[in-house]
Write a protein that binds this DNA or RNA. Structure first.
Length: 898
DNA sequence: CTTATGACTTGCAGCAAGGACG
DNA sequence: CGTCCTTGCTGCAAGTCATAAG
């Protein structure tokens, strides 16, 4: 596997990029140290040899693939349908937070919902349709090309009909579900259908019924009670979804809809879920499909719809293959679609549009007050008594003894300045150098050890206790739908840990109190009780144009806010995530022209134009970030527009060497060959400038983005990263996936994932024990090799009828026959090979972080569709949280291509 | 325009829970 | 069954980008 790299060549790119990156760790340390004067650099460079430049895509090529296959395989479709309950209603019930978790995993478990029997009934009205699916993606421009008829997606009609639900679902399910294997769960939410289209937001959410709440989360009483009305409303957001396209195109749809409609619908209809679903599981997909109505037609109408109630699934065809196989069942969904969302075009989200109608939550939770431990530090060898406030800060510092921050003068200086304010000018302690924090450090180590030693029972009890306390804060109800809150815990006080050479590192980050916090909540919702007796919130707002539940000013930089948002699995996040990927897919259709345009401007006489062209080229080819201006209060890092002359070096053969610190002070190092006009333009931009001057002196991100917007609606610099990443994944998966077992396919996926991570320069520090681990592995391999040798000797002897020699430790062995020995040899050999492979992978990935791209850059639909096509259980690729986060993508058509 | 806000996404590190291993 | 690792998840810092304000 390793060598797959070659495969991925750039198709078109003139440019080749390979980058050698520095391992992060190195850089981190090294960089930081600079200040301290160490010799920092010990960076190791990693060569990425193979990495293609980021994009190698020729613009043209990709389009070819159309998405629509009408035919999704039966299985898939079913899946899709299921998961998606797009209708809001469904969601409703489904949605419990936990609900999300259930996704169709392909595999197994179906039951959860079913079993539980949900009280709810959905109704499906229609069928759904899955088949239709593909068409949905409205977004795509591609569709434009496609005949309308083809596009259809589902009708709205179907959607609408939902009946009101009853939800009962037990709540439990939801909770319970958590325990159930993912596979078991389905996403209820998912939209249905089809691929993209649906995403209306509706999907996911289901309104919560009070009942549910009660059940599940019993504790949150407050929340629950709050909205008696069960109504679920769909949130306006949903409507937006389509908007993306809109800009461009169509708004198909007749649909009326829009939010209004949605609401109405929701209000009125709540779909019910059908219980039967379960039963259906057995039904062959094909049959089921039939049920669905097909609507096809209407181009305009768009999507949504579907709903099959249950889906089930299937079995798949393929036989055998293990894993994925199919069987997954799905749950059903009932979606109905109502969704309809309007496809219309609202301008994309964001705008000042309304984001919610009702918003209920319980506020946020504060860390416990500081508990003094009474351990004294030594000043010039003598114990010093500190007040609790002084001690608290001293402890923050003492505890960081083993970190790299201790080597940084800036860190110590900032700490000292802030601590001294607490000590007072005339305190006995007059300087940091003479302070010995060891006693506190030791005390802390002991505390840590104690904690570690607690029995698992005790730990569990503690965890449960904490859960109990936090439960009420974990959920919010948005337009009747229960949603998980992201960071409901206020950040505890501590020393600021800025990355890189941050000028404020070490400063004391003071404790946040209720009086610092602004709460945003529905007008009719009860105002959360302030968790700290005697104190009160700074302000209560009812701003329905934003999604934050609370915020406070960042104590380190008062110009910044710290927000509390819903979790990644929420509909708000899911919706915008989907919009992000749709925008990136749209870029695929424009990229050819965009490249042609900037290529033409490489030689423009207008310097601004020329700089825009070259900058765009870098962003496109190298996946650089936009590069906003930063002020002096932040670490000195750059992005494309802020590159300095010294960050780019022209080398022979039209090669440019990039070397700069990017986001999070991660080093970007890459030497690439560029087209001669670009090379010449860089020489020109550097002429008569000092190393520290801006390379693109006529540019900044707003100029660049303004220009990009002229090329494609809503296009911004970051879209290129998303596009490049997702395109690369889709392309590599398609080219490299071969027949084989699941493990092999997973390796292909990881390989593609790795290329993306390299393109995006996602690094991680090498674990401290990496080298130790490697040598341990080497040792084991050597041992196995010795065993092999011995086995071979024995085999030889056995064939000649002789008994085996004594083993090295002197023991005698069983007299095995040649066949048995051969088998053993084969096993050992396989073991050795596997270890060698693992070792290589490990070494290979020691500085590459795969997670970031998986979470933020790779369209999950690519992964889901690939898993469906190749029968790889989605759980092999996505963790539970990612499955929840990507609930909206689970029902994608197996033929989906980015 | 330019600067300042403001809101939301992206990203790495650290830690804890879960698994593999001996 | 404890130890060693790996891996997922959380925390919070650091970007992006739109828009309001000056």
């Amino acid at each position: 596997m390793l060598n797959m790299s070659h495969e991925y060549d750039d198709e078109d790119g003139p440019v080749t990029f390979k980058r050698s990156s520095v391992s992060k760790s190195t850089q981190l340390h090294s960089e930081m140290r600079k200040s301290t004067s160490h010799s920092h650099d010990g960076r190791s460079y990693r060569k990425t040899s193979d990495v293609p430049s980021s994009n190698g895509q020729s613009s043209s090529s990709h389009n070819g693939k159309v998405v629509l296959s009408a035919k999704a395989t039966a299985v898939e479709s079913s899946v899709a349908g299921i998961s998606k309950a797009s209708t809001p209603h469904l969601k409703t019930y489904i949605k419990s937070p936990s609900a999300n978790s259930k996704f169709p995993s392909l595999g197994n478990k179906k039951e959860s919902l079913l079993e539980k029997k949900i009280p709810v009934h959905v109704k499906e009205e229609n069928n759904s349709t899955k088949h239709v699916k593909n068409s949905c993606d409205d977004s795509e421009d591609e569709e434009d090309n496609i005949p309308l008829s083809a596009r259809m997606k589902m009708n709205n009609d179907n959607a609408k009909k939902a009946t009101p639900i009853v939800l009962k679902k037990s709540y439990k399910d939801s909770d319970d579900d958590d325990d159930t294997p993912l596979s078991a769960k389905f996403s209820q939410n998912t939209n249905l259908g089809k691929s993209s289209c649906n995403y209306d937001g509706s999907d996911k959410k289901k309104p919560i019924s009070n009942v549910q709440k009660g059940q599940q989360y019993g504790s949150n009483a407050s929340i629950k009670q709050e909205r008696p009305s069960t109504v679920s409303i769909k949130r306006p957001l949903d409507n937006k979804i389509d908007s993306l396209h809109s800009s461009g195109k169509k708004s198909k749809l007749s649909d009326p809809t829009s939010s209004v409609i949605a609401k109405q619908i929701s209000a009125k209809s709540e779909p019910k879920i059908e219980d039967d679903d379960d039963d259906d599981d057995d039904v062959p997909l094909s049959q089921r499909m039939k049920k669905l109505p097909v609507l096809a037609d209407k181009p305009s109408s768009m999507k949504k719809m579907t709903n099959v109630t249950k889906v089930n699934v299937t079995k798949i065809n393929k036989g055998a293959t293990p894993s994925f196989k199919k069987k997954a069942k799905f749950k059903k969904s009932g979606n109905k679609s109502e969704q309809f969302k309007s496809t219309k075009a609202l301008p994309s989200s964001g705008d000042g549009q309304t984001k919610w109608t009702t918003l209920v939550h319980n506020g946020i939770i504060f860390p416990p007050p500081y508990k003094s431990h009474g351990v004294k530090i030594l000043y010039k060898g003598k114990p010093v008594t500190l007040t609790p406030e002084q001690e608290e800060v001293a402890t923050m510092f003492a505890v960081m003894r083993d970190t790299d921050y201790m080597q940084k003068e800036k860190f110590k200086e900032n700490f000292w300045n802030d601590w001294r304010k607490l000590l007072g000018k005339n305190h006995v302690i007059q300087n940091l150098k003479d302070c010995d924090f060891t006693p506190i450090y030791d005390w802390y180590q002991i505390e840590k050890e104690k904690k570690k030693q607690m029995s698992s029972q005790e730990k569990k009890a503690l965890r449960e206790e904490k859960m109990k306390q936090e439960e009420k804060y974990m959920w919010a109800i948005v337009d009747g739908v229960k949603e998980k809150v992201g960071n409901f815990r206020v950040e505890p006080p501590g020393l600021f840990r800025g990355r890189g050479e941050h000028p404020k590192m070490g400063k004391v980050k003071r404790r946040i109190r209720p009086n610092d916090v602004i709460i945003n909540i529905g007008k009719d919702a009860p105002i959360p009780e302030c968790p700290i007796p005697g104190e009160s919130w700074k302000e209560i707002r009812h701003d329905d144009t934003v999604t934050w539940l609370a915020y406070w000013l960042d104590p380190i930089n008062p110009k910044l806010f710290k927000y509390v948002f819903l979790a990644a699995s929420s509909s708000w996040k899911g919706q915008s995530d989907k919009e992000k990927y749709e925008k990136a897919r749209m870029l695929k259709n424009y990229i050819g022209n965009i490249r042609a345009a900037y290529t033409k401007d490489f030689t423009s006489k207008d310097i601004t134009k020329q700089q825009i062209a070259v900058a765009t080229y870098f962003i496109d080819k190298l996946a650089l970030r936009a590069g906003n201006e930063k002020d002096d209060e932040e670490a000195d890092t750059v992005g494309c527009c802020t590159l300095k002359v010294e960050n780019v070096t022209a080398e022979a053969h039209n090669k440019l060497k990039f070397d700069f610190l990017g986001k999070d002070s991660i080093k970007y190092e890459n030497t690439v060959e560029v087209e001669p006009p670009v090379y010449n333009a860089i020489l020109k931009f550097q002429k008569d400038k000092s190393p520290g001057d801006d390379l693109f002196d006529k540019l900044d991100t707003s100029i660049l983005n303004a220009h990009l917007k002229e090329l494609m609606p809503n296009l911004t610099a970051k879209v290129f990263r998303t596009f490049n990443a997702s395109f690369t994944l889709d392309d590599m998966l398609n080219k490299e996936t071969k027949d084989g077992d699941v493990a092999e396919k997973v390796v292909v996926y990881q390989h593609a994932n790795k290329q993306v991570a390299i393109i995006c320069n996602h690094q991680r520090s090498v674990s401290k024990s990496h080298s130790a681990q490697m040598s341990k592995l080497t040792e084991k391999i050597d041992e196995l090799q010795a065993v092999m040798k011995e086995l071979k000797t024995d085999l030889d002897r056995a064939r000649k009828g002789k008994p085996p020699l004594k083993s090295s430790n002197g023991k005698s062995k069983h007299n095995l026959n040649p066949e048995a020995l051969e088998k053993k040899i084969a096993q050992t050999n396989a073991k050795i090979e596997k270890m060698e492979r693992d070792m290589k992978t490990k070494e290979d990935l020691k500085t590459v972080a795969l997670g970031t791209s998986k979470i933020n850059y790779l369209d999950p639909r690519i992964t889901v569709a690939w898993c469906k096509r190749h029968e790889v259980p989605i759980e092999k690729i996505f963790s539970k949280t990612l499955l929840e986060k990507f609930a909206w993508a689970m029902d994608v058509d197996p033929d989906f291509r980015f």
